Computed example of a mutant assay.
Amino acid sequence: MLTDTRPDAPAPGEPGVARPLARRIVEPSQRRRVRLGLAARYAVAIVVSLIAIFPILYIVSASLNPNGSLVGSNALFSDVDLGNYVELFSNPAQPFASWFVNTLFIGLVTAAGTVLLGGLAAYSFSRMRFSGRRLGLIAILLVQMFPQLLAVVAIFLLMKGIGDIFPALGLNTHIGLIMVYLGGALGVNTYLMYGFFNTVPASIDEAAKLDGAGHARIFFTIILRLSAPVLAVVALLSFIATINEFVVASVLLTDPAKKTLAVGLYQFVAQETSSNWPVFAAGAVLAALPVVVLFFVLQKYIVSGLTAGSVK
């Protein structure tokens, strides 16, 4: 019979005698369950990581493949050649460098404009009380339910009419395309920033008003500084959406030198008989670099911005 021989152990038959013995019997099985659980989690994480990493490796391998087709890329990194990257910048009929600069300009300006306009709208809904406030929030969500693709014809006709009066804002202009992007990105981003602004204590605004600050000063000097995480998230999402957008840019931009990366790279695979997938893959790799760099720069703000903005 097993007994507890410690000096302060209770007498046999009292409650608590069997507890140390039970722990000695249960703990090994618990440790096994914990180890099995951790092993299962690591296995799932490894499988998911491989699934996520494989397309990236395949695209990079295809961009280094000199054969001119995707068939030779099935064996990853069997042939390595930088000729596809050289060809991207050596064809005057397909000015990849201009497309890259155009995309960076349009993406950065759109991201900054989205943050500013969405922040102003979200601050108004969060801090001000006016008639139609709740209806306006609902309308923003309802409008976003309809994709921008449905309005392509209307956008084209609208930009054509504006171009007849203000040529700098009409068709085949970067400013006009930026205006279209700003109008289509305000809904979800405004609601996301609205939820984050609600988490900022209103007592800060009241203290600033006692010191004589108005709404503009409170917004630019206090709210924006406290809302850096959600601003980073909105800027990143807007930048990614602008780089990936194809339909509206292909309709509004007709000059080859003014096209964006998404529209320009499509030319490499648009023709069935002369498609060059490795060059297209090389362009896709270079197009992803700004997004990756911006993601790493804003990484510390992304998680907190998304979680805090979805609370209310």
Score class of each variant (00 low, 15 high):
F125D: 12
T103F: 02
L38A: 13
V26H: 04
A257D: 14
R35T: 10
S61T: 06
L117C: 11
I243H: 00
S90F: 01
K300Q: 11
R33K: 14
A121Y: 03
A308G: 10
R217K: 14
S124Y: 07
L252K: 03
H215Q: 06
A216S: 08
P15K: 10
S78M: 05
F89W: 10
A40P: 00
N102G: 06
K312V: 10
K312E: 14
L298M: 12
T307F: 04
S61W: 00
V80C: 00
L137W: 03
L149D: 15
F100C: 02
L117D: 05
L224W: 01
V47M: 05
L169R: 03
N67L: 10
V285Y: 06
V269D: 05
E14S: 13
G183A: 08
D79C: 01
M1P: 03
V115I: 05
K259N: 10
S126N: 07
R225W: 08
N276T: 04
N172W: 09
A97D: 15
T3L: 12
P10N: 10
S49A: 15
I138R: 13
F125V: 05
F239L: 14
A139Y: 10
L38V: 11
S61R: 00
L298C: 11
R24C: 02
F296Q: 08
Y194T: 02
A75N: 11
A22Q: 02
P229H: 07
M179V: 10
S250G: 08
R35I: 10
T103Y: 10
S124Q: 08
V311N: 01
T3W: 11
G176P: 01
L141D: 04
D205M: 01
S310P: 03
V180N: 03
G170F: 05
T273E: 14
P201V: 07
F77I: 03
H174L: 13
V247Q: 13
V303N: 07
Q271F: 12
V152A: 13
V303H: 06
H215E: 11
A18R: 11
L108T: 15
L289A: 12
L226Q: 09
L88W: 11
F280I: 01
A249G: 05
S131T: 14
T114Q: 10
L261E: 07
K258C: 02
A111C: 09
Y123A: 15
R129S: 15
A308W: 00
N244I: 00
L306Q: 01
A112F: 11
D255A: 12
A207M: 07
F220W: 15
M145V: 09
S227C: 08
L252I: 15
A62C: 08
G170I: 02
I204M: 13
G183C: 02
E272N: 06
L237P: 03
D255N: 13
E206D: 13
Q148K: 06
G68R: 00
I53H: 04
L298T: 10
I175F: 14
V251T: 14
L237A: 12
G283T: 08
A232E: 00
K300L: 01
K300D: 12
L38F: 11
G309Y: 03
E272R: 11
I204H: 08
L182P: 03
L88V: 07
L182W: 09
V303P: 01
L57M: 13
R24F: 09
G195A: 06
L252G: 08
I140T: 12
G187W: 01
P10L: 12
N65I: 04
S78W: 07
S49G: 13
A154M: 09
